[in-house]
């Protein structure tokens, strides 16, 4: 506005910013930014600094305390021993099933809808159901006894397996639906093209579909792993919270709400986040080795 002459005015600063995509519309981002800073970043860094200010000892003493105590340190291993196999099983089982169901068939919508049920029910209700169903007098053991597969009830609750099953029941449908959507994002003509070039279904799967699906599988694994890693209610309710299923989130919770030691609880939370991010980083690094561009379908 300042230049009135027909000469060649210098670029206005607003124009120079606009050229890089900065203008008034970006104000729309502000509420979300305030939100994420106030409710996520600030608490996170608050927790981080709090974890270096233990109630007694030097800045690292809470971390030292965690790693020197075998009972505490062991929670990392316990969590990984539950979460990694559960996440892996969920993803691996989902692939062949989704591969078979990726076409359109009658009742597909019903199957997917039924699969959403356990996800929406959540871990608390699943735990309650598992206690009834897998318990020593539950239907599952009754069927095993009635068919003489076992002589006495199998212990499936209040131990590792109870938690594992609860993770499969909520995690498998989640993984399946994700894998299914990634699969339907791959253009089916690619496989048909491979078929015209003489590839049988095995080769079509291993050389065309699987490589294109790998990035999706990695993402699915990450999301399933996050769910399994933060296992909390089922570890308490169907697991053995004092022993073999004392997961790390339980340790953090106990520090915060039973011992009221917030610095220590924050330290455990940070360790938990760190361990999880390390695993995710490894998976994502592996993912980047695959082709991740468009797969031609309507994904």
């Amino acid at each position: 506005m300042s230049d009135a002459g027909p000469g060649r005015p210098l670029a206005h600063w607003q124009h120079r910013l606009a050229e890089r995509g900065v203008d008034r519309q970006l104000w729309l981002l502000v509420p979300a930014l305030i939100f994420v800073v106030a409710l996520f970043l600030y608490p996170f860094f608050y927790g981080l600094t709090l974890s270096f200010q233990p109630t007694n000892g030097g800045p690292f003493s809470d971390y030292a305390r965690f790693f020197s105590d075998a009972y505490e340190r062991g929670t990392i291993w316990i969590t990984l021993r539950i979460a990694l196999p559960a996440a892996l099983l969920n993803v691996l089982a989902a692939v062949p099933i989704a591969y078979r169901m990726r076409g359109r068939f009658r009742g597909k919508r019903l199957v997917t809808t039924l699969l959403v049920v356990p996800i929406t029910l959540g871990t608390v209700l699943t735990a309650q159901g598992l206690l009834n169903f897998l318990g020593p007098t539950g239907w599952f053991n009754r069927i095993l006894l009635a068919t003489s597969l076992v002589d006495e009830p199998v212990r499936l609750t209040h131990n590792y397996w109870g938690v594992f099953f609860s993770l499969v029941i909520t995690g498998f449908p989640f993984a399946f639906l994700l894998v299914l959507s990634y699969l339907s994002g791959i253009d089916p003509t690619l496989e048909r093209a491979a078929a015209t070039l003489g590839a049988d279904w095995r080769r079509r799967f291993t050389q065309i579909t699987l490589p294109l699906l790998m990035p999706g599988l990695a993402t699915t694994f990450c999301l399933t792993f996050v769910l399994a890693f933060s296992v909390f209610p089922s570890a308490v309710l169907v697991g053995n919270p004092a022993g073999e299923t004392r997961v790390i989130s339980l340790a953090a919770y106990q520090a915060a709400y039973e011992q009221y030691d917030y610095p220590y609880a924050s330290a455990i939370a940070m360790i938990m986040g760190f361990v999880e991010l390390v695993i995710i980083a490894v998976v994502l690094a592996a993912r980047s080795r695959f082709y991740t561009g468009s797969t031609g379908g309507k994904g």
Partner: peptide
């Protein structure tokens, strides 16, 4: 992130 990881610092704040 697992909800517990940021939930505990968030609850503290």
């Amino acid at each position: 992130m697992p909800p517990i990881t940021y939930g505990i610092p968030l609850a503290t704040v």
